[in-house]
Amino acid sequence: MRKELIISLVLLAGTISLYLSLSLMEDPRAATFPKVIILIMGVLSMTLLFQSVITGPKKGRPGLQSDRVSAEKASASKIYFPYGILVGCFILIVIYFAVMEWLGFYVSAFLFFVAVTFLLGRKDLSVRKGGMRVGIALIFTTILFVLFNKLLVVQTPKGLFF
């Protein structure tokens, strides 16, 4: 229920700030359609808030179907949720984007592939498995390069190499 309350309050705050930003538009006529959408979103956010407060689970009372689904997922994920790995993956993706224009698409894709497979499979990493992962990354990026760069001539960020 707390989760539902938080999300409905966040949505309501977002809706209000978007509504206020409509006044900044150069021509008010351009805001007609977004205004209707934002108003409906506001009503729906209020409904969600109402649902979370009134119909939310309280001591033995069942919540909405979605609440229960979230609760089940939450209880299942409480066993083990890999926050560290998720954050690590997120950071790797950001680094991949940051270096893509500098190193080029194919080189950065290869390095990202290797880095991700090493990070996610670090528990059972051995020289043989490491070599296999590098090999698979190489094959994967080579196929991409031949198929898209040579055959279909699709443009990708060039960078330092190709």
Binding site: Y96, E101, A109, T117, G121, F140, V154, P157
Partner: peptide, 24 residues
Amino acid sequence: PNLFMIAAVTVLAVYGTYSVQNSF
């Protein structure tokens, strides 16, 4: 293994997105 799926899907997602308008 899922770790190869994760890497491949991310690379393909980036490639597919970029290639339509050549826009980062």
